[in-house]
Nucleic acid binder design. Structure first.
Lengths: 140, 140
DNA sequence: TATTGTTATACTCTATAACTATA
DNA sequence: TATAGTTATAGAGTATAACAATA
């Protein structure tokens, strides 16, 4: 395996493990962490949310069910369309999402702190180029 | 969210999606792809394999069961310890693993082809530094 | 008819706890 | 006693297909 490719896969698993670990510390599964990150700024309909998360609508039903049972999100009815449901963060969900977000930033910054300032600047620029077409995971 | 951190998370999801997509094209789940990659060069005992994959032994039992039902791996007894089981690739599992490996390399190379040669060299060096402590996913 | 969301069902993946067989 | 592996059980996550309500 090509060296750059192998390193990219390893970096991926490093970040995924960090993501899962930080989530666990906040009482969140990976899927729940992504759900909360998708709701940071506004209530979102089930269909739009499913598209954003890359899930079937039926899969999202279960994910939202479990998150709702844990008090992280709430379903709201939409006055303008009686078929539609909007999913919104509860105060507890917002707290958990913020803690997750902050801690992930700290943990990833630790990883990046090994780099010199020059390397980090360069790395940031190249990363931005590589992920230009990838939708943002976080709303900020 | 800090820009470098956000880009790293996005790169992670890009690579993970690629990993899952290539696996699906080879008839493999993500867990099965990782299992095959861990067996590339030799038969491995269940306990060692569980450690390598970061799973409980009982979780690995099920993963190997399903992979065995699909003809990807086989359990072999160990003459030197009658408690032990070694897991080995079948010819079909070896084929699937090679196809997965080759296609993933191609797909990731496509992503990296956006970079100039200079950027890629620099990126490779920085990546190697970041993942120095992460165990290799592939055996080569 | 098309869209929104849910239900029913099935499978994969994972963990914890209890167990068997062997060292 | 300690180790290797399995079984039993539970829960999360996901998909497909069929459905109900509304647009």
């Amino acid at each position: 395996m090509n060296e750059t490719v192998g390193s990219m896969v390893r970096l991926t698993f490093l970040v995924q493990n960090l993501f899962a670990d930080v989530g666990q510390g906040c009482g969140l599964t990976v899927a729940q962490s992504l759900l909360l990150c998708s709701l940071n700024d506004r209530a979102v309909g089930m269909a739009e949310l499913a598209t954003k998360l890359g899930l079937e609508r039926s899969s999202l039903t279960g994910l939202v069910d479990r998150a709702e049972q844990r008090g992280l999100v709430a379903r709201e009815s939409d006055p303008s369309d009686r078929r539609a449901i909007k999913v919104a963060l509860t105060p507890g969900g917002r707290d958990a999402g913020h803690r997750f977000h902050d801690q992930l930033r700290v943990r990833l910054d630790e990883v990046l702190s090994e780099l010199t300032a020059t390397d980090r600047t360069h790395f940031t620029r190249v990363l931005a180029q590589l992920v230009a077409d990838v939708p943002a995971v976080f709303s900020d």
